[in-house]
């Protein structure tokens, strides 16, 4: 699987990226690092086809992203998980998980499923894998942040994309739950040989669960290295606030 981006983007409320070229191989686990506003979300959104770059192109399996039909075709290749506010809070957990199948259903099928969910066993299996099978009929808004993140992952399991793009999936969780969730996410990716691209801030998680790290700052690529080759100095430089010196 190839993702190469070479674009910049003056888009309202998203950070402009400057000429970034990447190639991500199938099954790779890549972490995107960088301070807030460095363009991590923009990069993930461009890779997932959520927004279009003004210049440059994205190739998935050597096919331009624009030539893939949005919906069914794109959804079977790339799945996205966000930090939060990702689910429909009014629906039951099961309905949110089954949303991963919307690409396979017609409009009428989707309407029927709201009344009587189809392919229920898929949701049961996925939630079981994530350890929250008992929440099947719960209203999604009643779940904790960590549980909601698991529901979003269960939706990805049902969607079965070849690559998972995760935008700070653990940012709103405490360290223990963050570790737990990251472990689950990488397990899922490893088991089925999925590609995983995640933006996150914890360098400790990056070193434990990822093979490659990409550093972004002000929309520019700072480094793109195997995780072992990333030094503390490089991270300090990446997160350093211009003009602020910490001494002691």
């Amino acid at each position: 699987m190839t993702n190469s981006t070479n674009g910049h983007r003056p888009y309202p409320r998203s950070v402009a990226l400057v000429r970034i070229s990447l190639e991500i191989r199938s099954g790779e686990r890549v972490a995107i690092l960088g301070p807030s506003g460095s363009g991590k979300t923009t990069l993930l959104h461009i890779m997932g086809g959520v927004i279009q770059p003004d210049q440059g192109s994205i190739l998935i399996n050597d096919r331009p992203l624009g030539s893939l039909r949005p919906g069914r075709e794109l959804a079977s290749l790339v799945g996205i998980i966000h930090q939060q506010f990702d689910l429909v809070p009014h629906l039951s957990v099961m309905h949110n998980v089954m949303a991963g199948r919307l690409g396979q259903w017609g409009t009428l099928g989707c309407l029927f499923s709201l009344v009587s969910p189809r392919e229920r066993h898929l949701a049961v299996d996925a939630l079981g894998k994530l350890g929250i099978a008992d929440k099947l009929y719960e209203r999604t808004s009643r779940l904790s942040g960590g549980e909601q993140q698991r529901v979003a992952m269960a939706r990805l399991l049902v969607q079965t994309p070849k690559a998972i793009l995760a935008d700070e999936p653990v940012a709103s969780l405490d360290p223990a739950r963050a570790e737990d969730l990251m472990c689950l996410l990488t397990d899922i990716a490893r088991e089925s040989g999925k590609t995983l691209v995640t933006s996150l801030h914890s360098t400790q998680l990056v070193r434990t669960y990822f093979s490659r790290a990409i550093g972004l700052r002000n929309g520019e690529l700072q480094f793109d290295l195997p995780v072992d080759a990333v030094t503390d100095n490089m991270l300090d430089a990446l997160y350093n606030i211009a003009g602020l010196r910490v001494e002691g």
């Binding site: 997932g48 959520v50 949005p70 919906g71 069914r72 794109l74 959804a75 079977s76 790339v78 799945g79 996205i80 998980i81 966000h82 506010f85 990702d86 689910l87 429909v88 809070p89 009014h90 629906l91 309905h95 949303a99 991963g100 919307l102 690409g103 396979q104 259903w105 409009t107 989707c110 309407l111 709201l114 979003a152 939706r155 969607q159």
Partner: peptide, 27 residues
């Protein structure tokens, strides 16, 4: 945001309307 992720899951605009927009708007 939830609508955007429905689209990312492969939903068409009609499905986004039925499965997301209307569901959230109905109350």
């Amino acid at each position: 945001a939830p609508l955007r992720s429905l689209r990312a899951s492969g939903a068409s605009e009609w499905q986004v309307l039925l499965y997301g927009r209307l569901v959230m708007a109905i109350p």
